[in-house]
Design a protein around this nucleic acid. Structure first.
Lengths: 317, 317
DNA sequence: GCAAGCCACAACGATCGGTTGGGCACACAT
DNA sequence: ATGTGTGCCCAACCGATCGTTGTGGCTTGC
């Protein structure tokens, strides 16, 4: 493929061969086999070199695309200086959506989003410490347990919306306030006991006197969606930015919660020394997200003066 | 690569091997060599299969990307049913820009833009007839010369703008009318004699009494840009949609021409029978482009009632 | 404790991909 | 017209690679 592209660019197999460090015959054979496998003629051979056929012209951008894809794949995992790798809770989470948005507006950065399969912040901290990942959207509520060489900053706040099926009594509301959720059963499956999410929902239930059922295993999004769609009295809370490919036949409703807005504060942990150079831009990007209203509710561990400015420790090293 | 992706998706080398029609050992060896070449571990081997490492997770989307790239490259040139291939005058022309815009909003279609290296409409007609290309943005001014099985439709009109250097007397104008161009030298290099472009500029010069110098070879965009940048009395005409990567230091100005707008009518030729199925959408897209003002000037061969509706012959077959 | 399932290692043959050497076609200069 | 240089293709050869079969180690579940 590289031989083809270079030959097309240079117009001569000989030059391409010189650049690639092989003989001209090797390049000739490579292109011949490529043409044979594709069953199409890519070049017209002239006395002064080669020239692309129409098929070759059509093929060239695809070949370039493949080559850059290969190069990106290699840089993504090259030991040492590799692509920026960030751990998110799930590929549909608000964290992943924000990263995806950032990547779409900056497609030139090599960003990889991975998911640690374990739901334990300590594992994420260890992975950051070991350098397996460059950053992780995990919250360590007890900062004392954070190792000296790992730092945690506030990333952004994820406002919550209520998700209900069409038969739910709140289904037709345009917005809701937390008191209106009282006495309605809110089911949030898959919350590990004593995790920060459990703590979050605990505080939320206490502060607004809600019925939040955070017990029970999570059988997957499909089950959750079907349960909500069929039920007239079960609702759940999700992040406003969470990306769910709801099949339209489920006909679920996302209802914003206001006065106050409920939000989950997302943190980012990364190495204190020599963080990945691309991380800086990501963190700056958080500042451009639409901020919460001043009246928003946050759990107790969220430091209230949230907008402390973008100047974080790793920026002055 | 495909082995890696399938193994990652299925979680077992054995299943991937079955799907790919090879032995389990072959898949194992493929992945082992991939890991060796990348110098990274992609899977953790467990007793019940394989599981992606963090590196493997980061690599997976890139691998998928490469595979789809390869598949697209193949479909682009597959003899028989291949990607939609359209010939444009140049990759910076308005035609190419419009196609590129269309492709960006419909990235799923397999579209290839090629350029016939000869500036002769008859070659384009022959290429369409032979099936080497599916369509071409060429104009055959004498419809009698068009073969029976090739049809030509009006695609869209490309309004012209004046391009001048900073020292040109018209450089600071915001808009210009054709009479204001009188007595200024307009240099349009690279126009083949008796081509439709020569005819176009001929009519333009006659109708508005302009000094259009369409002689002389075209030494490339760089030369043209430098000439314009240095000169205080040479200007040129380009399409408003033409894409030129002007280096900023040239400081050239694009000045719209109004009252009347000058426009070049672009045509599309394609087979009358069994045109490429993807062509329909492209032609429909032309209708969504911003139309010319009613007062616009067009050459004599442009049929004045231009908006004849999108219903073209090949749509009812 | 044993069978089942899965992956890795080893040996072997076919194929592939590179090199060297030679030849043909064309462009250009004499 | 003829020689010369350039650029590509074909042929022969050889090492590396890729697939197969056969085997063994390991975990899991009955």
């Amino acid at each position: 493929m590289r031989s083809f592209v270079r030959a097309a660019e240079l117009g001569q197999l000989q030059h391409a061969a010189d650049e690639l460090g092989v003989t001209q015959q090797a390049v000739s054979k490579r292109i011949a086999t490529l043409e044979r496998k594709l069953d199409v003629r890519l070049f017209t051979r002239t006395a002064r070199g080669v020239e692309l056929t129409l098929d070759g012209q059509a093929f060239l951008p695809h070949a370039r695309n493949i080559i850059t894809g290969v190069d990106r794949a290699i840089t993504a995992i090259r030991p040492g200086s590799r692509a920026l790798r960030i751990d998110v809770l799930g590929l549909r989470s608000a964290q992943a959506v924000v990263l995806h948005d950032y990547w779409r507006s900056h497609p030139e950065i090599d960003l990889d989003v991975v998911t640690l399969r374990v739901n334990d912040p300590r594992v994420a901290v260890a992975a950051v410490e070991a350098g397996d990942i460059d950053a992780s959207f995990r919250t360590v509520t007890d900062r004392a347990t954070l190792p000296r060489d790992v730092q945690m900053i506030h990333a952004f706040d994820s406002p919550l919306v209520l998700l209900v099926g069409p038969r739910h009594p709140l289904a037709s509301a345009r917005t809701l306030t937390p008191p209106q959720l009282r006495r309605h059963r809110i089911w949030v499956p898959g919350i590990a006991p004593r995790s920060e999410w459990a703590e979050f929902y605990d505080q939320l239930a206490t502060d607004f006197d809600l019925r939040i059922d955070a017990a029970g295993p999570n059988f997957g999004d499909e089950v959750l969606q079907e349960t909500l769609a069929d039920s007239a009295d079960v609702a759940t809370l999700i992040g406003a930015r969470d990306r769910y490919i709801w099949p339209t036949n489920y006909d679920l409703r996302r209802i914003p919660i206001v006065n106050p807005t409920l939000a989950y504060p997302l943190s980012l942990i990364f190495p204190r020394t020599n963080p990945h150079p691309g991380l800086r831009a990501i963190i700056n990007h958080f500042g451009s997200l639409t901020p919460l209203p001043e009246t928003a509710w946050l759990p107790s561990w969220a430091t209230k003066p949230r907008r402390s400015g973008g100047d974080i420790e790793h920026t002055r090293r």
